[in-house]
Design a protein around this nucleic acid. Sequence first.
DNA 1: TATAATCGCGTTAGCGCTAACGTAATCTGG
DNA 2: CCAGATTACGTTAGCGCTAACGCGATTATA
Lengths: 332, 332
Amino acid sequence: MANKRSTIEDVARVAGVSLMTVSRAINGRPGVGEETRRSVIELAERMGYRPSRVARGLATRRTATLGIVFPDMANPFFAILAKGATDIARAADLNVFIMNTDEDPELELTAFDSLIEEHIDGVIVAASRLPRRRLLEQVSRFGSAVLVNSDIGGPGIANVDVDDRWGILEAVKHLVACGRRRIAFVAGPRESGSARRRLAGYRAGLVRAGMSPEPSLIERCIPDIEGGSRAAAVLLSREPSLDAIIAYNDITAIGVLRGLAESGRRVPADVAVIGVDDVPYAALVRPSLTTLKVDISGLGRLAMGVLLELRAGQELAPMEAIRPQLIIRESA
Amino acid sequence: MANKRSTIEDVARVAGVSLMTVSRAINGRPGVGEETRRSVIELAERMGYRPSRVARGLATRRTATLGIVFPDMANPFFAILAKGATDIARAADLNVFIMNTDEDPELELTAFDSLIEEHIDGVIVAASRLPRRRLLEQVSRFGSAVLVNSDIGGPGIANVDVDDRWGILEAVKHLVACGRRRIAFVAGPRESGSARRRLAGYRAGLVRAGMSPEPSLIERCIPDIEGGSRAAAVLLSREPSLDAIIAYNDITAIGVLRGLAESGRRVPADVAVIGVDDVPYAALVRPSLTTLKVDISGLGRLAMGVLLELRAGQELAPMEAIRPQLIIRESA
DNA sequence: TATAATCGCGTTAGCGCTAACGTAATCTGG
DNA sequence: CCAGATTACGTTAGCGCTAACGCGATTATA
């Protein structure tokens, strides 16, 4: 096996032309006659010739490879993001290294080092665990970079975001339109940027509806089922009159559903519930969950599209944002 | 930004030694004095020098990069598999290209071409959509390859499998031990290799328990909730006395639960149900689902481990298999 | 003490490709 | 009909690194 691969020189020799003619023919560059080009391409194909991207990378100082750095591809959010991004990259004949950092800043740094060693042309970073300064320093090492859900800028750096604030604002608007007046919010972890933006959306939504956000209607929690369930119980004991709960995400919202059921509240008759993410189970629980769906794949495609523009030299890439969509099901 | 990266030559010049001394020092190879080595490494670090894997790859004809090819990383199975595999690769300081084929044989072929162009050292392939001959032909282009859940062999090719047959056999054994005697099987799609192996396990399990597999207790279906629900109804109408159902996977099993509920059967009192996969939702449904769990991450780690051995020249890699584990919950 | 083995380093020659320039043949236009 | 532009190639010089070999100085061995 592995019968030595043929090189551009082999092709040139057999074709009876120079290296450059083959190179130009293969890469569709001018400077070769149509007939020569066709025959060279055909010969190359017959010989099973495949250009070495490694050699090409060395010669051109562009590798036609990119990198994506995020915490964990076992998390569907990142998996789908990467899928969307690589779909676009593939269409442009670019390969991409996907690096998991396991939420570990040290591993994230070695990932960046590794990508530098691979001489990649650009990088997409989502949910970095590095402090702002360090992150900026790292992404600046690359020719171009796109940051997802971050507001760090600089030359050759673009941003692509989910408009969480806008989404929750829509959710509040929907609940108000349904006649809900005591709307609570389960806020998720304090450190999370998205949690912060969602909370801001909640507050802005209430204000816009002529209400004022009350601290007693806001409860933080660990973003899992148990956390959601407990948060619901806490909110209910503090504000028995509440008639709607918006949760940090769907998992939390499912917990909220449990908590409400255990307290004897009916959903949506007594209390409406809205989650965020539209995870697959959201449609399966009883009652099925009304939720804010983000087109994650679209987010990935957008990020990669912006990166390609950046790579091509279109320096100006303003911040792009993707708006969630309210999926109305039984719970609200 | 992108202030020109320093090369090995820069380091050598500043250090006042030759290129090779730097190369040897950096790569931990013999032929340099301890003192020189330390000072060179320290200088390289201070200068922010990172060796170019591209140049190194050209010079050594080994790229220290690998590839993984599968249909869809938005599918958690593949995402987790890739995660496990890349964890191991990272520990060995290898980078990996992850290629999605979108279930498209054409795209799979271009993925292989692309990986050849990248000159990767080895590849892991899962759920190829290529005919056996073509797949063998493709993976033979690489120095080493590991196939997941396939039985294609050859020089430099190893296999890593989930022992589906054994798993279902265990499930049958468990049901028999619980006193079930009319065990049905929802078989999933006919084309799937895993479906075939699971069916074989079901038959073998019955035989081993002294029963004989009856066609009326086997029903194929589309592997989604609707399909599972319908299959349960069909089985029930054909064999009202059945007291257990093993489903192709958890999604199907959840459908089966629905179907049984709609027919007024209680689970597990009247009918026991077992799924396969242990998807997160399996623990959330009512009753919670007894299922066969596969350590997918372990499968990925195993695959990558075998690939690394192959790459290192340990030619002999017999077929390795991972056995599912029966997670006993309420449904059985 | 002579000889071989070892150590610590340097030099040379590529790996496979392309950028940049060179050159002969053909074309174009006034 | 001839200068200048254009076309269709070829040649040369690297990209950044390492394999392989070279070579003097030190150390072990007979």
